[in-house]
Simulated scan of single mutants.
Amino acid sequence: MPDGDREDFAFEGIGTRWQVSAPGLLGPALRTRLLDVVERFDADWSRFRDDSRVTAMAREPGRYEFPAEAGPLGLVYRTLYQLTGGAMTPLIGTSLERLGYDAGYSLRPSGSPLPAPAWDDVLDWAGTTLTAKAPAVLDIGAAGKGLLVDLLAAELEAGGVEAFIIDAGGDLLARGPDPVPVALEHPYNEAQAIGVVQLAGRALCASAANRRAWGDGLHHVLDGRTGRPVRTAVATWTLAETTMLADALATALFFLPGDELQRSFDFSWLTVFSDGSATHSAGFEGTLFS
C-alpha cells in the first residue's frame, strides 16, 4: 500500500495506540463500527473498569455469559495452562494487582508475590459461559489484544475491505497481496532493530520484559505458579494465522521452548534471552542482523 493510496485510521483503545491502514477510504459508518467493537470488547473483558463483566466476576461468584470469542479464547488458554503446568493462566489478575499493576496503575507492590489460584478451584470455562466458583480476577492480557485485532479484521472484511494492516501497539495483522517489511525491535534499545520480517497475510506479535515494566525488576509477564516476573527470555516474536494465537504464544515462549509449543500449535517464532543469545524455529520468516 503506497502512502499516497493509503488511509490511516488511528485511535486509542484498551490502553493501546491503534492504527488501521487500508487503500481507499474507511467511511464514517465503518469507523464507527470499529470503535463500537473496541468499546464492547473493553466492557466485557477489562479488569481496569468498574462496569466490565470481568470486574463483576471479581466481585461476585456466579455464571457469566460472554460473547462468541470467549469460546476459542478459553480453548487456547486451557491448552497453554496445561502445557505450562499452570504458569500461563487467565487467573493472573490478582497476582498482577499484588505487584502494583492494578486498576489504578499504582505500580506499587502491596505485598509479596502471590501465586494465581488453580484454574479448577475457582473457574469453569465452558464455551462462552464462565462460572466463577469464587471471586476471580480474570486477566486475558496475554491474548486479548490479539483477539481484538482479529475482531476488527472481521469487521473490516464484513465491510468489504480486503487489504489492510492493523497495528495494535506493535502487534500486527496484514491482509493483502503485498508483503510488509517489519523491523524487530532490539529489546534493550527501541531505536535499533535486530532483524526484519516480511509480513504477508499473517499476524506478527511480540512480547518483551522491558514493556509494561516498573519498580525493581517488575514487569507484566508473571509465572502463575509463583506470582513472580519471569527471568528467562527478554523478548519473543511469533507469526501465526490469527493474531490471538500469535499473541498468546508470544507470552507462552517465556515459559516453554518454541519447539515444545510447536507440537501443539502451527506457528513460527524467535526468542531472545537475557545473555543476548537467540533461538528460532526452522521456518521463521525473519532475517536477523549479525
Rank of each mutant, 00 (worst) to 15 (best):
Y188A: 15
L114C: 12
E155S: 00
A278G: 07
F41M: 07
V180W: 06
L26M: 06
V230A: 14
D121E: 11
T94N: 12
V37M: 10
L148Y: 00
L130G: 00
L184H: 00
Y64V: 05
E65A: 14
W237F: 06
A246N: 03
H280Y: 12
V272D: 01
I166R: 03
I92S: 04
H219N: 12
D216H: 15
P257Q: 10
A191C: 13
H186Q: 07
P229W: 02
A134P: 05
F48S: 07
A142E: 07
R17S: 15
E60L: 13
L222S: 02
E190D: 13
I165A: 12
V37F: 07
T242Q: 08
R31E: 04
A183R: 14
P177R: 08
P135S: 09
D42F: 05
A168V: 03
V137K: 06
G160R: 03
S268T: 13
Q192C: 13
N189W: 11
R231Q: 15
S264I: 05
L147H: 09
S268Q: 11
T287F: 06
G169Q: 06
A246C: 09
G86Y: 08
L288V: 09
G71A: 15
A103D: 13
A116D: 05
G111M: 10
M244D: 02
S277A: 13
R211T: 00
S95T: 07
A29E: 12
P181G: 03
R108T: 14
V221C: 03
A278W: 08
S290Y: 07
S207M: 08
G224H: 04
R40L: 13
L26H: 01
A126C: 14
G24V: 00
T131P: 08
I140G: 05
A252G: 07
D178Y: 10
A191S: 15
D121S: 08
S264T: 10
T16I: 09
R31K: 13
A136M: 10
S268D: 14
L245S: 03
D223K: 10
L222T: 00
G4C: 11
L218F: 13
D120Y: 04
G141P: 07
P179R: 02
F66G: 01
Y64Q: 07
S281L: 02
P113K: 09
T251P: 03
T251H: 10
G160V: 02
L245H: 02
M88G: 05
D51P: 03
L138E: 01
K145E: 12
T279A: 14
D121F: 01
R53T: 14
I165C: 13
P181Q: 05
T236V: 08
S264H: 14
M57K: 00
R231P: 14
Q82P: 11
R263L: 12
A200G: 08
A240P: 07
P72T: 05
D275Y: 11
G144R: 00
G15H: 08
V180R: 07
D178W: 13
W269Y: 12
P67V: 05
T279I: 13
G104F: 09
S112E: 15
L249S: 02
V37I: 15
A22T: 09
W214H: 08
N189Y: 11
G27F: 00
V221S: 01
